[in-house]
């Protein structure tokens, strides 16, 4: 499978993502957003970074790039799409996924390790885990607070579209383990199809065995 890792002006996790995908045996290539999506792409990652300087709202500008029409068409046809961090913000701004990621409750940029509970293991992104598993991944964001109307969140939860929640090391979901004030501790959600997903934590930064734990490999393994 060839995965396109889309570069916007200001993306900065693009090459890390290619390297991490390579380490799980997935061929990946960097695609500059102005070049459009090439034929034969079988997976898409919207990587982390600070596209367009986070001006207006994080992800708002990149979501309007013409390549996002290609991404939407591919997603509708069943191509797996993963948005990570800034890519998650772009995915929500482009309505690939519900809700919005906005200013952290702390009003600060936060760079730290968090624990995540796997809420639904029956998706391509989480099939390497069991429901209730706790994994540790880094976050690095200033606008990661998941915001959505209460009604809409009820529907998402009823439809099992929450991928991960921030939690304590033992898996308990508490206000204290919520790093950014996300509603119901949501760290990642799926789109209308579970082949489309976004998450604020960085699986690609926990995927190379040479540099430490590899809790994120299971997420990227969706493309394998």
């Amino acid at each position: 499978m060839t995965v396109a890792v889309i570069q916007f002006g200001g993306s900065n996790c693009d090459r890390d993502t290619v390297q991490a995908l390579d380490s799980v045996g997935v061929e990946a290539e960097l695609i500059w957003h102005e070049d459009g999506l090439p034929a034969g792409i079988e997976g898409i990652v919207l990587p982390g970074g600070f596209s367009y300087g986070d001006f207006l709202r994080a992800g708002a500008m990149a979501a309007q790039s013409p390549i996002m029409d290609d991404v939407r068409s591919a997603a509708d046809a069943g191509t797996p799409v993963l948005g990570i961090c800034n890519g998650a913000q772009i995915g929500c701004e482009a309505s690939l996924t519900p809700g919005a990621f906005t200013t952290n409750e702390s009003d600060r940029f936060q760079c730290e390790h968090v624990h995540l509970r796997v809420e639904n293991a029956d998706t391509p992104w989480t099939r390497a885990y069991e429901e209730g598993d706790v994994i540790q991944l880094p976050i690095a964001h200033g606008e990661g607070r998941f915001e959505i109307s209460d009604d809409r969140l009820d529907t998402l939860e009823a439809d099992d579209r929450i991928l991960f929640r921030y939690c304590e090391p033992d898996g308990t979901v508490t206000p204290e383990s919520n790093p950014n004030g996300s509603k119901h501790n949501v760290a990642g959600v799926t789109g209308e199809r579970d082949s489309v997903a976004v998450m604020m934590p960085h699986p690609e930064r926990m995927s190379l065995p040479d540099i430490g734990p590899t809790d994120g490999r299971g997420v990227l393994g969706a493309f394998a």
Partner: peptide
């Protein structure tokens, strides 16, 4: 609608 505001928030 297209860019300046996000109707979710």
């Amino acid at each position: 609608e297209r860019l300046l505001a996000n109707p979710t928030i």
